[in-house]
Design a protein around this nucleic acid. Structure first.
Length: 959
DNA sequence: AGAACCGCACTTTTT
DNA sequence: GTGCGGTTCT
């Protein structure tokens, strides 16, 4: 609808630039279109610059898309808008801290600075490792907290807690809690009591016990409370309700020590992170918030004249407050849809939008307690509803509302009147009415899904609209299968492959962190060069203890059966063969092994990678991030498989909502945390002392927390919204599918469930357009011009045990350069001794050319480059390219392979007749290792892939 | 009809 | 550890 004019509500939003606005923008109502037009309208005012208008999105992709659309719509070009504040909260906070935030930690009593070199830890596993290191040290330093640690199974639970507190705006300072943070930790008895009472209400007019009493039926089961814990009959009472005073008994508990513990962990972790020169995403917001709270001049300086927040239902409490601090005026506009709030696990709080006015008022009050930080009135708030839907037929829109009304479980009762009251019904703008909504159940669900797809493709009953609005029969590419779990999607993909049906999974898969991938990697390493890292994994897996593994690695005599297996693998010619044999050995025959195999093969086939390349590829994949993105090639005609969470913002003519099976949608259960934090209950600990920790029977010594856990209602709202989101992706047709045991949702929806047995035809692979999986190579920056320094990834956070780290490496490198330049320097450690020895051993006179990047113009015998490659040594017939590394074990030679290769090819041009080698010099051991060169094509390919990220198939249509 | 008991299964993803 | 659904008991 780029060419179309805005409708009345959209126009109203575009025109009302001033004042507080809450916009309910349902699915497919042209939200992005309207927001970008509104932005253009604001900046078209004579005294408003793009810099004055903050537009917050929740993903970088969304920000980029917004920017692009805005450029197309106003008189500013991309250049003027390149630095305009159209960004995520996180990147905005990053900018603020970078520019003004050096002293931010001091406001929390932390004597450290945020500097330009402070890194943002993006990888969860990296942070967990760092946190683990921190918590080890912390527990050593604080014997007084031994009791807490005895009850903790996973220290990462504490990291979760810290992040959750940060997202709620609860921070520790030197003495206690920043501002009114402690109130949140204490909880709110009145609010708790309301929830307690609601859950303690007898059912069926008094004839049936309350939900709470029923839940407490398992009180004490498979638990061993301390002797002073009350009896079950005492807890549950004798009537239909539990005793009223139970609320107070479980709520009132001395938590001073627990709060102190959490405070110390939290505060010292912040100190630790700053000392190690990193921040996580939560800390970005934390410090930016503190800074904006404390520094009144800065707040005025940074403040924006206009603030717009997109996808407001995905915002967290601290983000709401940040927005208030960043707003210099009341020109605040939040746009969102509570019905599409499905990211609470990312600290999103739907109440930000549902209770917007209450929260606005409350948060401003909190911010203004001691100083007027927010100086505009919180009323009036103008509400604008976008109700015209440009995506789906009316029938689908009507049906989608049922998703918000049906019970998600037998015991779930929905307050339909209350839901209806909140729903703003959408009106379809579609000019065609051909819609089908159906549900099928089959004992072989996967086959049923595929058979349904075969039935749909080319079938005029399922006709869809082409770009000009004319009806046409559907293609594979018109269909999306949405699932709640990745697993089902992956399995379906495997089945589709068997039948040759073109299907591609889109989204993140944690492919290379699976045991399957790690074992395969280990064996590939063993095959490649027998290195310890391969054997260590394999031996550990076979049950050897760490000491035994060490001994075996030391003696290099490996178990006979493993050596035999290695020889067996050596015989195999293809990578697929190796992988299959490895998986067979360990009994991996599930979908994960299949996908690992398939993915590696597609990388392998599509390129000319050697086994060594693949090893490095897997290493990088493991290192660089937990999930591995797998995309369908753009433009191929294949069915898309996605999780519902990943489909937000997308749309498809035909949606198959699969895996509507009992027990899985909605999810059941969920592990019990040790320390929980949840308003209004506050901070609680469930102390479980395990047998392993004590050699005693399992002791559960906090019966209060046990009961508290049951006093809060289980909320199914998000499950229902998930269903709603999935249905509203569809333009024309929806199919639900379930296996043997359909769940409550599918039974409660107003649609007949038809039992089917599917007849599935095998598709001739030659005839269908094959889809290939493209795996994004985790390659960093590409080259700019032809200087190699841009090839080096500079975001590798190096921190190695025993004091070896970035700083140490820099020192060794500085020493090496100074020594090569002939300066009078003394080695300070073994590494520098080794470097000195190495340079001394090189023959010939030493000549130096400073700042010698490319091209290498040399007429001397020998050149030192003070650039990124550490040393280029030239003799009459030989060029040696050398890179020092201070931290063997952290990085293989693959890390800087591209960069060394670029030098290699340049040297080739400069010295066509010389022998050219490139190698890594490990300073710790004094070992030099040659590096195999990449061809120019290979470098080019890696670089190109890094520069052109694959597009997602269908972005939010142009509205 | 309601209460008690038993066995089963056990996410999503962005910054 | 916990919620669900089904079965059995009262």
């Amino acid at each position: 609808m780029t060419d179309l004019e805005p409708n009345d509500q959209q126009q109203e939003l575009i025109d009302s630039t001033d004042g507080l606005h809450l916009v309910d923008a349902g699915a497919g109502t042209g939200k992005t279109f309207t927001v970008t037009r509104r932005h253009a309208n604001i900046v078209s005012q004579p005294d408003v610059e793009p810099d004055d208008v903050l537009l917050v999105t929740f993903t970088n992709n969304a920000a980029a898309e917004m920017k692009e659309r805005i450029v197309g719509n106003c008189h500013y070009g991309m250049r003027e808008l390149a630095d305009a504040p159209i960004q995520t909260f996180h990147s905005l906070c990053h900018d603020v801290l970078e520019e003004h935030g050096h002293a931010a930690p001091t406001h929390l009593g932390i004597d450290d600075r945020i500097t330009g070199s402070t890194r943002i830890i993006e990888d969860e596993l990296v942070e967990e490792a760092l946190f683990g290191e921190f918590i080890d040290r912390f527990s050593d330093d604080h014997p007084e907290y031994d009791d807490f640690f005895r009850a903790l199974s996973e220290p990462t639970g504490l990291l979760d807690l810290v992040n959750q507190l940060a997202a709620k705006g609860v921070f520790p300072d030197a003495e206690g809690w920043y501002r009114d943070g402690e109130r949140h930790l204490d909880g709110d008895f009145a609010a708790f009591k309301r929830q307690f009472d609601e859950l303690n209400e007898p059912r069926n007019g008094g004839s049936k016990q309350s939900v709470l009493r029923s839940k407490l039926g398992r009180y004490g089961r498979s638990k061993c409370y301390l002797p002073d814990a009350p009896e079950k009959s005492d807890i549950r009472g004798s009537g239909k309700q539990v005793p009223d005073e139970l609320a107070r008994r479980v709520f009132e508990e001395d938590r001073e020590e627990l709060k102190q513990f959490v405070h110390d962990v939290y505060h010292e972790y912040l100190e630790f992170a700053l000392r190690r020169n990193y921040l996580n995403f939560g800390m970005l917001q934390l410090f930016a918030y503190v800074l904006l709270c404390e520094n009144h001049e800065l707040r005025d300086e940074v403040a924006f004249e206009y603030v717009m927040i997109d996808e407001f239902q995905d915002s967290s409490e601290i983000q709401f407050k940040l927005a208030l601090l960043l707003a210099g005026t009341n020109n605040i506009c939040v746009v969102g849809d509570w019905k599409q709030s499905i990211y609470s696990f990312q600290y999103a709080d739907v109440d930000n939008i549902v209770e917007f006015e209450d929260r606005l008022d409350r948060f401003v009050g909190q911010l203004n307690t001691d100083h007027e930080r927010v100086s505009f009135p919180t009323t009036p708030v103008t509400t604008i509803e976008l109700v015209e839907n440009y995506r789906s037929t009316q029938e689908i829109l009507g049906f989608s509302e049922h998703g918000l009304r049906v019970p998600a479980a037998n015991r779930d009762d929905v307050d339909i009147a209350a839901v209806d009251d909140r729903i703003v019904s959408l009106e379809s703008n579609a000019d065609h009415e051909n819609t089908t909504i159906e549900a099928i159940q089959s004992d072989e669900e996967q086959e049923a899904v595929l058979a349904k797809i075969q039935e749909i493709v080319g079938n005029d009953d399922y006709r869809v609209e082409d770009e000009d609005g004319n009806p046409r029969p559907p293609k594979y590419g018109d269909i999306a299968v949405m699932t709640r779990t990745r697993d089902f999607g992956r399995e379906l993909l495997g089945t589709a492959e068997e039948y040759g049906l073109p299907m591609a999974y889109e989204g993140g898969i944690e492919l290379f962190r699976t045991d399957q991938a790690k074992l395969l990697l280990a064996w590939l390493r063993i095959l490649e060069d027998d290195i310890d890292r391969g054997w260590a994994v394999v031996l550990e897996r076979a049950g050897y203890t760490l000491d035994e593994v060490d001994a075996i690695l030391e003696r290099r005599v490996y178990p006979e059966n493993m050596v035999a297996f290695r020889e067996e693998l050596r015989e195999l010619e293809t990578l697929g063969g190796v992988a299959q044999r490895v998986f067979a050995r360990y009994g991996y025959d599930g979908p994960t092994a299949d996908v690992v195999l398939h993915t590696l093969q597609s990388v392998h086939n599509a390129t000319t990678q050697t086994r060594g390349d693949l090893i490095r590829f897997i290493e990088r994949a493991i290192e660089s991030g937990s999930t591995h993105e797998v995309h369908a090639s753009a433009g191929t005609n294949s069915v898309t498989v996605q999780t519902i969470h990943a489909t937000k913002g997308l749309e498809y003519p035909i949606v198959i909502l699969a895996n509507m099976n009992s027990g899985r949608f909605p999810p059941g259960g969920g592990g019990g945390g040790v320390i929980t934090y949840d308003d209004p209950v506050g901070l609680r600990q469930r102390k479980v002392y395990s047998e392993e920790a004590h050699g005693l029977p399992h002791i559960y010594d906090n019966w209060q927390a046990d009961v508290l856990g049951k006093c809060l209602p289980h909320n199914y709202d998000e499950e229902r919204r998930l269903l709603y989101v999935a249905i509203t992706r569809a333009e024309s047709h929806v199919v639900f599918t379930a296996g043997e045991d359909p769940n409550t949702f599918i039974e409660e929806l107003p649609v007949d469930v038809e039992s089917v047995t599917s007849e599935l035809a095998e598709i001739d692979r030659e005839e269908t357009e094959q889809t290939t999986l493209q795996v994004e190579m985790p390659v960093q920056e590409g080259p700019k011009g032809h200087t190699p320094h841009t090839l080096m990834r500079d975001d590798v956070f190096e921190d190695v045990e025993g004091g070896r780290g970035t700083e140490f490496g820099t020192q060794v490198h500085d020493f090496a350069e100074a020594y090569a330049l002939g300066e009078n320097v003394e080695p300070r450690n073994d590494d520098e001794e080794n470097v000195m020895q190495f340079i001394d051993d090189l023959d010939g006179e030493l000549l130096v050319e400073e700042d010698a990047y490319l091209p290498l113009t040399v007429d001397s015998e020998r050149v030192t480059i003070s650039g990124i490659v550490d040393l280029v040594h030239v003799t009459s017939d030989h060029v040696e390219i050398i890179d020092y590394k201070t931290d063997r074990g952290r990085h293989g030679e693959g890390e800087y392979r591209k960069q060394l290769s670029v030098y290699y090819h340049v040297a080739r041009e400069v010295y066509p007749d010389h022998k050219i080698t490139a190698s890594i010099f490990y300073t710790e051991s004094g070992v030099r290792q040659d590096v195999e060169q990449l061809s120019i094509d290979e470098i080019q390919r890696l670089v190109t892939e890094a520069e052109t990220p694959t597009q997602t198939t269908k972005q939010n249509a142009d509205r």
